[in-house]
Design a protein around this nucleic acid. Structure first.
Lengths: 150, 150
DNA sequence: GCTTGACCTTCCCATCATTGGAAGGATTAA
DNA sequence: TTAATCCTTCCAATGATGGGAAGGTCAAGC
């Protein structure tokens, strides 16, 4: 099986298969005399596993861990579960972040007439200086006020 | 005001201020004789606006639109509202995607003992070939079966 | 056998917003 | 004067993916 067929059979693009090989997520395959990569059914099986994990939002690094646990007959299921639950936490943190953005925006939009007039609470809120930004990297080591005399 | 002070006052890092300038999101500032960028209060105000928009997840491109609407006294609030609501849609789509991932994973994790034994429904599901992947770019133009005879 | 088109190879570039760091000049306080 | 701090520009990296060029290979049809 060539890479294109493996791609179609696994749902992982040929580009990504080569990439996964280059970063060591999957092993280098046998090549034909002319240099074409050759894949067997079990390679496609692995690619499908990777594809499913990717669809669940796992990072390539986590996928590498999952693949190696998958191929380890003596794995402990708690190791797999730990990766999954850690990822759930990340997902839920992200979800909450996005929900906060969305609800703020919906609130602002609800109060915006959305007509031809210029008055707009959305812009007003964005321009609102009362909303203090958190500290941030400034390039300067002691912030806007200079070094506080110790 | 130097860039570091503008950064501390706005919550946008000096690095990003330079970047925003380079891509044209903000105007080039006056410089001192020695080349230091000089910022005024209204620049900080703009940077805070940008920072607030960024915190709400707007892309730089959208922020550029918002800034220009903000500075246009004759804007129509519907133009602002359209950008905001479009972004809400994107956010909600993303939220749903992440929620599906999280709920699948939680379901799988609930059924995984998470002990020292190797049996693991999480890995089983990832390895499940029944879950058909969607079509994907393969590098090949006619998929795994070759060109269908027309 | 030769042409053609589909397929493969490697290599480089772009994305998006952001950070890191190097090399070197400017400013400022002690 | 010196040392610390800040500024400058430029280059690189992130993560996962796609785009595309330049060129070699393979299979089908004439």
């Amino acid at each position: 099986m060539n890479i294109g067929q493996a791609a179609a059979a696994s749902g992982v693009s040929a580009k990504m298969i080569r990439y996964y090989e280059s970063i060591g997520l999957i092993r280098k395959t046998v090549r034909t005399e002319s240099g074409y990569r050759v894949y067997a059914d079990h390679d496609v099986h692995t690619l499908r596993f990777i594809r499913r994990a990717r669809d669940l939002g796992f990072s390539v690094e986590q996928i590498a861990d999952l693949v190696s646990l998958w191929q380890d007959r003596d794995r402990a299921s708690k190791d797999v579960k730990a990766i999954a639950l850690e990822h759930v936490l990340v997902l839920e943190r992200k979800i909450q972040e996005l929900q906060e953005m969305a609800s703020t925006l919906k609130h602002l939009a609800r109060n915006c007439h959305g007509d031809a007039r210029p008055h707009c609470p959305i812009l007003e809120e964005l321009a609102n200086d009362e909303t203090a930004p958190l500290p941030v990297k400034t390039d300067a080591k002691f912030g806007a006020l200079g070094k506080v005399s110790a």
